[in-house]
Design a binder for these strands. Structure first.
Length: 503
RNA sequence: GCUCUGUUCGUAUAAUGGUUUAGUACACCUCACUUUCUAUGAGGAAAUAGGAGUUCGAUUCUCCUACAGAGUACCA
């Protein structure tokens, strides 16, 4: 009997959460929800220098918008709080001390400058400087110094860090849920700092302590953490704690070129890399977000889920519930995936088409009231007319604005193509025909107008194109007869006549 | 440099030690539909990085090479 999982998403509040982070959160969510487990949000703010105001709110807002809210986290205590590492500061020191007492860690007094000099020195000789068994006896630490020397240095207030004493001559075989076995020689590991001279733990210590204390069963995180896995496993061993299972997700790469997806790629490619819009508090710079660009959260989630995962069937369109049901960590890919903005748009289009029409009616209503536009149409009719050509909610307005506002300018190319010498006369005749129609529905208009055109033995384009220009302003848009029935007889005739005058 | 990880059409991916002419989707091209622009439908082109080995048989397993990514901070 396996216990219900507890997973955590542990971002640091150094800026807006980008879609790679959202995907990590999503995979955690899907994994744990499939087994009725718990999704914990933990804020890793041990580096006070990089703290960005508003970033934490952004993270929770983004998760909520995506419909993957956390069960436990800041403001939602589940008995394992607090959930910000800055608020757990007092906890970590004792664990570092425990490791020292057990001989798994030691004090080190080397300054950053000294270490930097060593690195440069080694580099010049073509070697790599690693702070570990190889040379720690030659450096300034509690292993090379006598106990009294160490004590006096500490008592005199000299700054120090606590380092992990990584073992010598050991081959570690680690298991990753996605990648399988990973082999590593401990001799290439360095003695990572666990506790900084500013009194804060580093990521590694805080992470292991918190995962243990919060009873995390599965650590699902980005591939960039894979190189730290040996250290983390070693730490669990040193504490004599049961280690959670680990899964490292493939990275999301730039759509073109090399490297992982970054903020600049979005600007360059004209697509958002953030779920929500973000305004940098310092530079006032605005980074666009999927929400503000009109994407549905379902579409973003669906797209993200398919970056590095697939259900093994040919189904591509999934609701969140379906994803929860189908998700399986073993079906996650190992290789990094290039991000595809086009495919994202396709997911959006599909979800937009499948969405409830009332949602679109509401959206359009909001847009209209924002623009202060009064109308007398049935908006549901308007939406059903244009829905199939819309991808984003803003398209709803772009595609229907001509219904609400008569065209005042006409597309030049269209006019040149369609407005000929005999057009005014034909249009005049058309208005007379239209005005005689009593039942002004699209079917009736269509029948009457079409048979009139046929009887005149001229091409459809001769009538339909100038008519479209009159009603729409350009040679675009949905079915003309539907348009006429929505805007009504009077408006239709009015538009034809005013166009005739202007052209 | 060193360590780890990875490599199937342009992109995301499926499949299996043999029933595969390697499937699907996006993008691309062609055609159809249409009064126009979309949308839609039908069709097309397009891939197992290279080399060796194991095997009756490898895209699938092993090794080497190449390439790519990540890590290599008192950042997470």
């Amino acid at each position: 009997m396996t216990k219900t999982p507890r997973v955590r998403f542990a971002p640091s509040p150094t800026g807006p959460l980008h879609i790679g982070g959202v995907r990590t959160a999503l995979f955690n969510y899907l994994f744990t929800k499939k087994k009725q487990g718990t999704f914990v949000l933990r804020i890793e703010d041990t580096d006070q220098n990089r703290f960005v105001h508003g970033a934490e709110d952004y993270i929770t807002d983004a998760l909520n918008w995506c419909n993957i809210p956390f069960d436990e986290g800041p403001g939602k205590d589940g008995g394992f709080g607090p959930y910000r590492q800055s608020e757990r500061k007092h906890l970590y020191r004792q664990y570092a001390d425990e490791l020292i007492a057990k001989g798994y860690a030691y004090y080190a007094f080397d300054t950053s400058e000294e270490l930097e000099a060593h690195r440069k020195n080694h580099e010049a000789q073509g070697k790599t400087f690693i702070y570990n068994w190889h040379n720690r006896a030659k450096l300034t630490n509690s292993l090379s110094l006598s106990d009294s020397e160490t004590e006096s240095k500490i008592n005199s207030g000299e700054p120090y860090v606590i380092r992990f004493k990584s073992p010598q001559d050991e081959i570690l075989v680690l298991t990753d849920e996605i990648r399988g076995e990973i082999t590593i020689d401990t001799n290439v590991l360095d003695d990572k700092i666990l506790f900084k001279s500013d009194g804060m733990p580093t990521y590694h210590l805080a992470n292991i302590v918190d995962d243990h204390l919060m009873e995390i069963t599965h650590v699902i995180r980005g591939e960039e953490w894979l190189p730290s896995l040996p250290l983390h496993i070693l730490l669990y061993r040193a504490f004599d704690w049961e280690s959670p299972k680990f899964a490292h997700l493939p990275l999301i790469l730039k759509p073109t070129g090399k490297g992982k997806l970054g903020k600049r790629d979005g600007i360059k490619g004209g697509f958002p890399v953030f779920p929500l819009e973000w305004k940098d508090p310092k530079t006032e710079e605005i980074a666009s977000g999927y929400r503000e660009d009109g994407y549905l959260p379902e579409a973003v989630i669906n797209m993200l889920a398919f970056l590095g995962w697939n259900p093994g069937t040919e189904q591509e369109l999934f609701s969140l519930e379906e994803l929860v049901k189908e998700f399986d960590l073993t079906r996650v890919n190992k290789a990094g995936a290039k991000f595809d903005p086009e495919k994202t748009k396709w997911f959006q289009q599909q979800h937009f088409q499948n969405a409830d029409i009332n949602l679109h009616v509401e959206q359009l209503k909001n847009i209209l009231s924002k623009k202060n536009i009064s109308y007398s149409f049935d908006l549901e009719e308007v939406v059903s007319l244009i829905q199939e050509r819309a991808i984003f909610s803003n398209d709803l307005w772009d595609l229907s604005s001509f219904l609400f506002i008569a065209p005042s300018e006409y597309d030049e190319k269209a006019v040149k193509k369609a407005w000929k010498e005999d057009t005014p006369d034909l249009m005049h005749e058309l208005t007379r025909i239209l005005s005689d129609i009593n039942n002004f529905t699209s079917d009736t208009i269509s029948n009457i107008v079409k048979s009139w055109i046929k009887s005149k033995e001229i091409g459809f384009g001769k009538i339909m194109m100038p008519l479209r220009i009159s009603l729409v302003g350009s040679l675009q848009g949905p079915d003309l007869f539907e348009i006429m029935s929505i805007i009504g007889k009077n408006e239709t005739i009015k538009r034809i006549e005013s166009t005739k005058e202007k052209l």
